[in-house]
Design a protein around this nucleic acid. Sequence first.
DNA 1: CGGCATCCAGCCGGATACTG
DNA 2: CAGTATCCGGCTGGATGCCG
Lengths: 121, 121
Amino acid sequence: MLQKAEKYSVIEMCPIRNVVARFGNKWSLIVILILSENEVVRFNELCRIIPDVSSKVLSGTLKALEADGLVIRKVYPVVPPKVEYSLTEMGTSLVPFIVQLTEWAQANMNSILKHREQYTG
Amino acid sequence: MLQKAEKYSVIEMCPIRNVVARFGNKWSLIVILILSENEVVRFNELCRIIPDVSSKVLSGTLKALEADGLVIRKVYPVVPPKVEYSLTEMGTSLVPFIVQLTEWAQANMNSILKHREQYTG
DNA sequence: CGGCATCCAGCCGGATACTG
DNA sequence: CAGTATCCGGCTGGATGCCG
């Protein structure tokens, strides 16, 4: 305790920072949640479901999740192209924790918002 | 399902995005974890414990957490100044979920790293 | 349909220096 | 000791346009 926390030092070695660096962006969690609710979703479906995301950013988000082994990208060699996204087993195993976090957020959101507006920095 | 997800629309109304917008930054989770392990920590202790954080960024992080009602900032009117940070009840209630997330990250980090290096974008 | 290329603005975090 | 002030570079995310 209270000594230099080596375990938090190198971001590549730090699970928290590693995981948060991945999910801390604007859309990753929403994508995972939607995939967990729908099993298989096409690119443009995600585009429509998620409000205000550009296709460039969405594809970047999906790529990152795919690179981590959380999401599967399945391409059908047809015209017009068809691409389906789904969660891997590892991705699915993460869902319960995200859901719990979401529930906590839901339960405490009002309190947090109230604190924020009362706060005088 | 597969309809415009209003629940994710407005960030102020969306618990996930609200919570992640707050913890998705570089240091918040580490600060919360350290506070959860130590009960009361002074500013400079945090500075020393956390690697590579500047005092400006740290104070910003703490302010945000304080504004949300997750962290208490207690100032002692002495010279030199003494300020103690600790978790509120709400902050403490969040810790288990973060810990779970951390454990998931720890358990899956190797797999994630392996996927990343195998991934050819 | 499912992207990528390009360009661009804003924010986040870091370095340094200074203060009550 | 516990910050704030200033400056700055880089990255993230968004807009637009193009392509197989």
